[in-house]
Design a protein around this nucleic acid. Structure first.
Lengths: 148, 148
DNA sequence: GTACTTGCAAAGATTTTGCTTCCAA
DNA sequence: TTGGAAGCAAAATCTTTGCAAGTAC
């Protein structure tokens, strides 16, 4: 599940404080991992990395923190075409939406940005008067390395 | 989770037979429900409708049949932004991919087709040499009826 | 007849809830 | 100090697996 590292506008911890969210030690550890991650993490992977920094962190706290971040629109939740089980993956929200391409053979996840995607979202908002909060485009298929 | 009824190229049962899939009574009941459904069904809803026609049908058979249909690329699996729980929804694959718009307030699901979506997929295939098997675009937001 | 499918029960994976204790502001 | 957050245990939800019995071809 590798992906390029990416950076958000400003530190999540800082963003949360400015929104009046109580900044606990656990939350600080968790958002630092999410922001520094070189891949898309699921809840359990995030929990394991967090325990390396603070062995007392509970899995439930991970779920609750992810829910809180999602509620604030600071992370995106991905399914990555359910390549391995039904868990979800998380990434810090970036300035621009991107598409996830999941290779059904090797499992590699690529990211893709396109102005067509932005135009498509604009078209939906105009033609349906639908105010998009979150858009998720995932494609499953065969990557360039996995073709005959 | 209402959506317009839609029809596929040819009956799923017929399609399966032509692919050499053993056509059991249970499978026939299930694919007929999927094809005639006026909404996106999850596994349990599908099971309940199937039991009305044949009370002996087991939930496990529903999951196994859905997995088989998915493997053959005859149904699409949707998450519908996880509006209610983490279950999946299924629909018979149609000739043209469409986008699902999930209202975060009223829960209504709208479908949207666009040539921009087709162009975007084409761009991905060309620029990344990625052979798309299935593409899923879901957006969460507020529909025209749910805006101030 | 044989290989594939089903039903049943049980387990597995992921996520949520209730409640008490703790801690950030 | 006090309301929100964390930890723990238990439950809930959704899906899969093992195996014996049944059935389509």
């Amino acid at each position: 599940m590798l992906a390029e590292s990416r950076s958000s506008r400003r530190p999540l911890a800082q963003e949360l404080v400015s929104r009046g969210v109580r900044m606990t030690h656990q939350r600080r550890v968790l958002v630092e991992i999410i922001q520094g991650a070189d891949s898309h993490l699921d809840a359990v992977e995030l929990w394991q990395r967090a325990r390396a920094k603070d062995p007392t962190i509970n899995k439930v706290t991970v779920y609750r923190t992810l829910a809180m971040l999602k509620k604030h629109g600071l992370v995106d939740e991905l399914d990555l075409m359910h390549l391995e089980g039904e868990k979800h993956y998380y990434e810090a929200k970036t300035t621009r939406d991107h598409i996830h391409l999941a290779c059904l053979k090797c499992g590699r996840i690529q990211e893709f940005e396109s102005s067509l995607f932005e135009r498509l979202k604009g078209q939906i908002e105009r033609e349906r008067r639908f105010r998009i909060q979150v858009a998720r485009l995932e494609a499953g298929g065969y990557c360039d390395r996995c073709q005959p």
